[in-house]
């Protein structure tokens, strides 16, 4: 509102024509020719620059998928690496179009910050890592343990909640940055390391003897991570939402970037609708009808995106777990395209 007011005020002063002060996001994006995507400043598997300086990761690939749907070109996206502090400000000020930065979907963020979560790209949860030689098999045996964690995160609060709920005592050893936390744990300053389970997989790589440590089975918090857009543009919200659903549906239907051209000839009506040879679903969002085809061609389906960035063949080696499709025991569920 402030922005609108100041725009109008200045426009009045300078006699500018304030045409379309709030043009539709999709039109804005199309006219500037790229998507501005907020990612994290570095999180293994989610957004991190590779040796050539290209951003890679699950969060990054999702933005590329949106770019592919709009422009048929996954490179038409620019990344703004954001810290946890300023990610929402950047979105609210219009500095970025999508925030795809391992952001947990919570009621506060969804309702009071003027934001919309479009879906869940990764179901995460807080877990514990401990040395094997401590002979602990469950988080419920951790009473009296010293726990290394990062300050000022929800991790610390989840930890307190969990131990209090189970009547256990613990000692927190907190550090400002993740790197310090790992070094402290590796040096034996605490018994347990806690953070999101995807984070644990990344931290494990930095340990002196990764095989001496296990991740306990308990998940003590729900951390559904997903892309975020700002309030006020439902069309843009729809597009970002359905890009993920298209990728999930593609995996479910067995359509991948490798077999795309065979599948395009398939008689299966669901595949036809996904790839745009039947129906006018793309146009309904202001895109072309082959929007689904474009996403799969350039970025791939959800499984491809997952395996490329965090899957078993990457150093992170994260099993699908809760991120498997709904019909394979997981939670990922693509709404039907029809």
């Amino acid at each position: 509102m402030k922005r609108l007011l100041s725009t109008l005020a200045l426009a009045g002063v300078f006699g500018l024509s304030a045409a379309g002060a709030q043009a539709a996001k999709l039109d804005q994006v199309k006219s500037k020719g790229f998507i501005q995507c907020g990612v994290s400043q570095g999180l293994p598997g989610f957004s991190t620059p590779d040796d050539k300086g290209n951003w890679t990761g699950l969060d990054v690939d999702f933005c590329r998928a949106v770019a592919a749907a709009i422009f048929d070109d996954p490179t038409k996206v620019k990344f703004t690496p954001l810290s946890a502090k300023d990610r929402f400000t950047a979105l609210q000020s219009g500095d970025i179009d999508i925030l795809s930065r391992n952001t947990t979907w919570t009621i506060t963020r969804d309702t009071s910050l003027g934001l919309n979560f479009t879906g869940v790209t990764y179901y995460d949860g807080q877990g514990f890592m401990i040395r094997k030689d401590k002979k602990v098999n469950s988080a419920l045996e951790l009473s009296g343990a010293s726990v290394c964690t990062q300050t000022g995160t929800t991790t610390e609060q989840n930890l307190a909640d969990y131990f209090r709920a189970n009547n256990m005592t613990y000692e927190v050893i907190a550090f400002a940055t993740n790197d310090e936390v790992v070094k402290a744990y590796d040096a034996g300053r605490c018994d347990v390391l806690t953070t999101d389970r995807s984070g644990l997989a990344g931290e494990r790589l930095k340990l002196t003897n990764p095989d001496d440590h296990i991740v306990l089975p308990e998940v003590i918090s729900k951390e559904p991570l997903g892309p975020v857009v700002s309030h006020g543009d439902d069309q843009w919200f729809d597009i970002v939402k359905w890009v993920l659903f298209a990728q999930l549906n593609a995996e479910e239907l067995g359509v991948s970037s490798k077999n795309l051209d065979e599948q395009a000839k398939s008689a299966n009506p669901e595949i036809k609708r996904l790839l745009g040879s039947e129906g006018k679903f793309g146009e309904g969002m202001g895109l072309t009808n082959d929007w689904g085809y474009r996403i799969i061609k350039h970025v791939g389906n959800y499984a491809e995106m997952y395996d490329r960035n965090v899957g078993p063949d990457t150093p992170l080696k994260l099993a699908r777990g809760t991120n498997a499709l709904w019909n394979k025991g997981g939670l990922q569920y693509g709404m039907p395209i029809r």
Binding site: Q41, P49, D50, S83, D86
Partner: peptide
């Protein structure tokens, strides 16, 4: 300037630490 998403020398270094292909005990 790292806090305003401009990657200076040290910011670039910190980003490089997160590359899982180079994560090791001595990278830091």
């Amino acid at each position: 300037v790292l806090i305003v998403s401009i990657f200076d020398f040290l910011g670039q270094l910190r980003a490089a630490f997160t590359d899982p292909n180079w994560a090791s005990p001595v990278t830091l």
